[in-house]
């Protein structure tokens, strides 16, 4: 193996970590909500799209990127909480299928709204020039946007871990995820904890959107839909409702995609996506509860 091969592998590893990190953040957002109310939120991607549009409008209005980012993330959080209040609260205790279809309908409605109110076409987003640069470490050329993505993912994961294990609200949320009924008896308010879960998932979607947009510098009505489909699959792969599983699933999926893109023969490149997903389904066949199953599944009694 020559120096070039090693460089190539390192290069692809960086790409995989950057992409996998974004999937991990999205999958984590899905898992937070799922673990608490059993909802697989199809409209999670639309939160991402909303954050993307806010970034776009900030650019048009001349708001600096550094200010645009928190605005975008905050808008995704607000949108998530609004979504819960309007669409999901009325069906809160319904079956998983009902919740899923509700969120599917919300996603479709939002997509059509984006197409009508903003534009059906892809719109450019102004991102700082710096993100387009790349730096050289050893023989390795790494895009600043990739480094930014990796750093942001790390910060988010560490912050979330701290929040979930040290903070009162985080602990309440974990308690609610384990057993919602008991958590309520212990004085945790259902509305508060669910709203907090949605806010958190909105935060994660917002950050993921910033990372996504800073690599592509454009936004369109379906921007969030495709990556969130992948994130679903990552969440299932990791173990539905398990937070660590979601992160693991996100990174595994990122690696699969990047490695297939890099090493699959060019004749096969067109089938990259089906092959990657088939690999994931294969892993699920071997581990039907996911890589790191949720605790509630293990403790389930007959």
């Amino acid at each position: 193996m020559g120096a070039n091969d090693i460089d190539l592998i390192l290069q692809q590893t960086v790409n995989a970590v950057a992409l996998g990190g974004t999937y991990a953040l999205l999958a984590l957002g899905l898992a937070v909500v799922f673990s608490i109310m059993g909802l697989i939120n199809f409209a999670h991607g639309e939160l991402m799209t909303i954050a993307g549009y806010v970034l776009m409008y900030c650019g048009i209005a001349g708001v600096p990127f550094v200010l645009g980012v928190p605005l975008a993330v905050a808008s995704a959080m607000l949108a998530a909480m609004a979504m819960e209040r309007v669409a999901f609260r009325p069906v809160r205790n319904a079956s998983g299928a009902t919740l899923l279809v509700t969120s599917f309908a919300v996603a479709m409605i939002l997509q059509v709204l984006f197409q009508n109110l903003i534009s059906p076409r892809s719109q450019p987003v102004i991102v700082p020039d710096l993100l387009g640069h790349s730096i050289t470490i050893g023989g390795l050329v790494i895009g600043v946007n990739k480094l930014f993505a990796i750093a942001a993912t790390l910060v988010m994961l560490v912050a979330l871990e701290t929040f979930m294990t040290r903070q009162k609200h985080g602990i309440a949320m974990r308690a609610a995820a384990e057993d919602f009924a008991i958590a309520r008896l212990m004085g945790i308010r259902a509305n508060t904890v669910i709203a907090a879960a949605f806010a958190l998932s909105g935060l994660l979607a917002g950050v993921a959107a910033v990372l996504w947009v800073s690599q592509r510098a454009s936004v369109d009505p379906l921007m969030g839909f495709t990556p969130v489909l992948k994130a679903f699959i990552a969440a299932i792969l990791g173990g539905l409702g398990s937070l660590r599983g979601a992160v693991a699933g996100g990174f595994v999926l990122g690696f699969i995609e990047v490695l297939l893109a890099a090493f699959l023969p060019s004749d096969w490149q067109e089938f990259r996506e089906p092959i990657g997903l088939s690999l994931v389904v294969l892993m699920l066949v071997l581990r039907p509860n996911g890589l790191i199953p949720a605790a509630t599944l293990q403790a389930q009694k007959a």
Binding site: G96, A235, L240, L277, V281, L284
Partner: peptide, 20 residues
């Protein structure tokens, strides 16, 4: 392939089927 999958996991597997 989806023999052992339950509930939401099975649903998402069907979603993967659509994309594949």
């Amino acid at each position: 392939a989806i023999w052992r999958l339950e509930g939401s996991a099975a649903t998402i597997a069907t979603l993967a089927l659509l994309i594949i």
